[in-house]
Amino acid sequence: MSKKIRILGYGSANYGSIINIFRKLDQDIDVTENYKDIKDCDLLILPGVGTFPKAINFLKKKKIFEKIRENIISGQPTLGICLGMQLLSNSSTELGYTKGLNLISGSVKKIPNNFSNIGWNDVFNKNKRKFGCFYFQHSYYLDTKNERMVNAYFQSDRFRIPAVIRKKNIIGFQFHPEKSQKDGYNILNSLIKEI
């Protein structure tokens, strides 16, 4: 059965790719800034692409920052993709200090050595089993001490980045499932079945 999925619009983001993959999964998907539309949906998506302060300022300017926060606290299934996942954290240092939605513990920091994590990486779950190969595109990452909510991670030679976080009704992907071909399709298909 088709679920009502809404992408929260906050300026420049890859709505087109997200819309395409959810349509392929036969879902009712659209982009919205309208709170009523957001409140009524089965799954809210906070998309990726852009910078942390720009997205937060957009939500505040539209006066939906607090409303969305309260809605997620009250149990709305929410998926954060890349920047969207980071927005759920306490804060970020991207282009200066900015407070986030404060729904998952941790702060967003620049990946050491001016490194941008671009491309395909194997993601592993807590048992060190390969979870899939996904497309990443980010220069900042979620630094969290709450290991319990990190369901899967990407390990490089120098650092470990939370790739999938899970807390009650919130799920976050640091990678872009909509651009991760078969593995991305499968993970979104599983998510839809769950909500």
């Binding site: 300026g11 420049s12 983001a13 890859n14 709505y15 087109g16 790719s17 395409n20 692409v49 852009g50 595109q137 872009h176 651009k179």
Partner: peptide, 12 residues
């Protein structure tokens, strides 16, 4: 223009 491209599904 850059912003428009992302909205159309361009990633980079």
């Amino acid at each position: 223009l850059a912003s428009l491209l992302f909205n159309y599904g361009i990633d980079r």
